[in-house]
C-alpha cells in the first residue's frame, strides 16, 4: 500500500458515498445515469469474485464489501425506491456497445485464461468506459447538479491517483500491470474535459454547465 493508492481509494469511497447521499437526501436521482451505475455494479461484481476465496488484507476485504454493497444500494435507489425521478429520457447510452467490446477485448488481451482472471480483465476494461453513459447524459442535459459534479470529480481523481500509484510501484517494487495501466489512463482521459470544466467553473462557485 502507498499514499497514492490510499488517497485514490479514499476518493473512490467519497465518490460512492457522495452519490448515495445525494440520491438519499434529495430523494431524487435526477441527472444520474442508472446505466453507468449498472456498469459499476458489474465492474465490482466481476472484479471482487475473489472476495470469497482469497484474503489479501482486512482493508482489502472491507473495501470490497463496501463498494459492492454501496453500488447495489445505489441501483436499488435509482431503479426501485426513487424510480419516479429516474430520467430515463436522457439516460439513453447503448451499454451493449460497451459490454460487447469489453468481453471481446478481455478474450484477446489478458494475463491468462482462467475464469477469475478473465473476469478481472473484463472488469478493468469495463471500468475504463463505465462513466460514458453518465458523461453522455450530462452532455445531453447540458448541465449537472453541483453535487453530481463533485461525485464525478472524486471518481475521476481516484483513477488518476491510481496512475501515480502505478508509477510509484514501478519504481519502488518494479511492479507493473500493463492492462490496468492502459485502461486506467484511458479512463482518466475520458474525464479530461470534465476536469477542465469542473476546475474552471464549479471551483469558482459557478454552476456546472456545458458551453452551449
Amino acid at each position: 500500500m502507498n499514499i497514492f493508492r490510499l488517497l485514490g481509494d479514499i476518493c473512490h469511497l467519497v465518490a460512492i458515498i457522495v452519490l448515495l447521499l445525494k440520491i438519499w437526501k434529495t430523494r431524487s436521482c435526477a441527472g444520474i445515469s442508472g446505466k453507468s451505475q449498472i456498469l459499476f455494479a458489474l465492474v465490482y461484481t466481476t472484479r471482487y469474485v475473489d472476495l470469497f476465496f482469497t484474503y489479501v488484507s482486512l482493508y482489502n476485504s472491507v473495501m470490497k464489501v463496501i463498494f459492492l454493497a454501496s453500488s447495489y444500494a445505489t441501483l436499488y435507489l435509482i431503479y426501485v425506491k426513487f424510480k419516479a425521478t429516474y430520467d430515463f429520457n436522457h439516460d439513453t447510452f447503448r451499454i451493449e456497445f460497451l459490454l460487447i467490446p469489453c468481453v471481446i477485448l478481455s478474450l484477446l488481451i489478458t494475463h491468462d485464461y482462467s475464469p477469475v482472471e478473465l473476469l478481472w480483465t473484463f472488469s478493468i476494461y469495463l471500468e475504463a468506459v463505465a462513466i460514458l453513459p453518465q458523461l453522455f447524459m450530462v452532455s445531453k442535459t447540458g448541465e449537472a447538479e453541483t453535487i453530481t459534479s463533485h461525485y464525478l470529480f472524486a471518481l475521476g481523481a481516484y483513477r488518476a491517483l491510481y496512475i501515480v500509484n502505478w508509477i510509484y510501484r514501478y519504481y519502488t517494487e518494479s511492479f507493473i500491470d500493463g492492462i490496468a495501466v492502459v485502461a486506467g489512463i484511458i479512463q482518466t482521459i475520458l474525464y479530461a474535459d470534465f476536469f477542465y470544466l469542473y476546475i474552471t467553473k464549479v471551483l469558482k462557485g459557478k454552476d456546472f454547465k456545458l458551453p452551449a
Binding site: D50, V56, V116, N165
Partner: peptide
C-alpha cells in the same frame, strides 16, 4: 504468482 499476488489492488 497467484491471483491475489497479481491483483492486490481494489
Amino acid at each position: 504468482a497467484s491471483f491475489s499476488d497479481l491483483h492486490d489492488e481494489l
